[in-house]
């Protein structure tokens, strides 16, 4: 008799537990189904791949860049300022006339940064004398992305 009562208590106890658990299980199941459905749909339609297709390529003006944040001396400050003014005020309104990449102004800055003042100036004049429409096409590597001949400071 006592054993029977015990069994009934256990069953009724587990019933109350079950009553509490079942709604929770249903909620979890429904939420799980919804999340799985969302995952399947977005993956199957390749939405992640489609999302970034028509990214606008915004033009960013070229500015002077250096290894250090501050100019090392007065000459570098002058060079950086002239470069930035030229790029912002003149070059931005100019036709893309330079046949090389990097452009003559960028090349000049790089030459002055990498070499010394004398060599940098000579490199600049050399580049300016070479930058014209009559250059031999086989002499330089043609960069199809930039549509320019590649001529870095060597």
């Amino acid at each position: 008799m006592t054993q029977k009562t015990k069994t009934i208590t256990i069953i009724s106890g587990s019933n109350t537990d079950l009553r509490r658990i079942i709604p929770l299980l249903i909620i979890f199941f429904v939420a799980g189904c919804f999340s799985m459905q969302a995952q399947v749909s977005s993956n199957d339609y390749k939405m992640d791949e489609l999302r970034g297709l028509f990214e606008a390529h915004q033009h960013k003006p070229v500015t002077y860049t250096s290894d250090t944040n501050k100019p090392k001396n007065e000459f570098e400050f002058l060079m950086a300022s002239s470069f930035n003014v030229y790029k912002a005020f003149f070059s931005s309104q100019d036709n893309p006339s330079c046949v090389f990449h990097p452009s003559c102004s960028e090349y000049s800055v790089q030459a002055l940064q990498q070499k010394n003042l004398l060599l940098g100036t000579l490199y600049t004049f050399d580049r300016l004398s070479r930058c014209h429409r009559l250059i031999k096409p086989g002499q330089y590597y043609f960069d199809p992305m930039k549509q320019r001949f590649y001529d870095p400071v060597r």
Binding site: A38, Y45, M47, L50, F54, E55, A56, H57
Partner: peptide, 21 residues
């Protein structure tokens, strides 16, 4: 125009994604 195109396209894709879900 290309900036507006990107914006419009992203909006469309967001809308399509919602509709398909």
């Amino acid at each position: 125009i290309s900036v507006e195109k990107e914006k419009t396209y992203n909006e469309i894709i967001r809308l399509v994604e919602y509709t398909l879900s």
